[in-house]
Design a protein around this nucleic acid. Sequence first.
DNA 1: TATTCTTATATGTATAGACATAATTAAGCC
DNA 2: GGCTTAATTATGTCTATACATATAAGAATA
Lengths: 232, 232
Amino acid sequence: MTSERASFRTIRDELSRRIAERVWLPGALIPGEEALAEEFGAARATVNRALQELARAGILERKRRAGTRVALHPVREARFVIPRIRQEIEARGSEYQYRLLSADITDAPEVICARLSLLSRSNMMHVRCLHLADRVPYQYEDRWINLNTVPGARDADFATMGPNEWLVGHAPFSNAEFTFMAAAASPDEASLLQIREGDPVFIGERITWMAGEPITLAHLVHPASHRMVTHL
Amino acid sequence: MTSERASFRTIRDELSRRIAERVWLPGALIPGEEALAEEFGAARATVNRALQELARAGILERKRRAGTRVALHPVREARFVIPRIRQEIEARGSEYQYRLLSADITDAPEVICARLSLLSRSNMMHVRCLHLADRVPYQYEDRWINLNTVPGARDADFATMGPNEWLVGHAPFSNAEFTFMAAAASPDEASLLQIREGDPVFIGERITWMAGEPITLAHLVHPASHRMVTHL
DNA sequence: TATTCTTATATGTATAGACATAATTAAGCC
DNA sequence: GGCTTAATTATGTCTATACATATAAGAATA
């Protein structure tokens, strides 16, 4: 049929085409690996790789013994890169600037502990800072760092380096939760971002863990002009 | 060393651990597949699979002949599921309701054509509708559908089914671009979402293409209470 | 009928061996 | 030196084979 030489890419794309063009309808059972291998003149392992990729992409659903079927509710996923603010700004050709507002070791308030699922009021590093692009406020960062899991943060110098940049080099994470939302700027946020109180802001919140232990909570506030773009 | 039986999972996790625990530092060259295969008592193909997964996750960077090294700037990516609004609302145990506001066939304004990279003012279907959760406005949708690429939309009945639901079943897409931002509610948006004009809203914009041809532009407006959450 | 056990089967994974491909390094040449 | 070309090498992919594992479906049982 397909006169191309067998390759998992060729096979993957051809199967993908059949699904997109509705040759195989959602929910339908598609031929088994053995049959496809014969059709494409390839080894079963090659077909398997193609099928696994499509399954990972959410286009197919596979179950042992039951076979492979076209996903009924194709849960399409998109990826977005976790921004590293300096690179993000410099990649646009803008000048990056960083300004530390405060850095204190203190007991975290209830709200913060609750967000991090911490029972006791742990000792934490609280950092507030501002990131600017071409001398214009780009992001206000309000961050809590768990000193129990990242004791090194106690002696870190956040005057020259943002907490994110420091953490990337000193505290890897295994899990993260991202929340995005819109809100009205508080008086503090407004004055820092040079906007008016009540103006809309784009907020990203990020919590990271290492092996179940919370590392940090970052509350990142952007002016409404901010765009978060991603492709599929 | 690791007394476990070889498996690409075991190997992947062990390598991942070495990177997380900084046994191998960012930028460092790690042993070749052959060497790792010997260390783990596995075949090279098995090690290859483990390494490829880590490379796909952005933890490793691989180059032919040059070898594999720990990513210097681990471009961590997070995935988010492209929400299907009915399922999203019903999954929370809320009642989903849909209300069509308007559906017209018209020439798209310049702004819309520009967003879709269309030169001429194409004939388009313009649909405006509202999605409610437990009788409270959840999302206002303002959508343009390219009738040149999806002629079937001309006869679709958007009174009972939202355009997204219809498109999922009738127009697959190969590419998509997502933009998220915060903005102030326009008078129209405010009255539809039952909020005040100027209140912050969370906006998602989605453009989809099939084989290079633009299919649709969706402008989705949520009240500020909306949260977009994703995990890594 | 309902429950448990058995079996058949499609996918999941591992392996050794082979060849393909990209990219670095070294050799040859002007 | 600076250029082109060839050799080297680590990763990329394919194959044939084998065995593992989940599970649907049928058989046996209560």
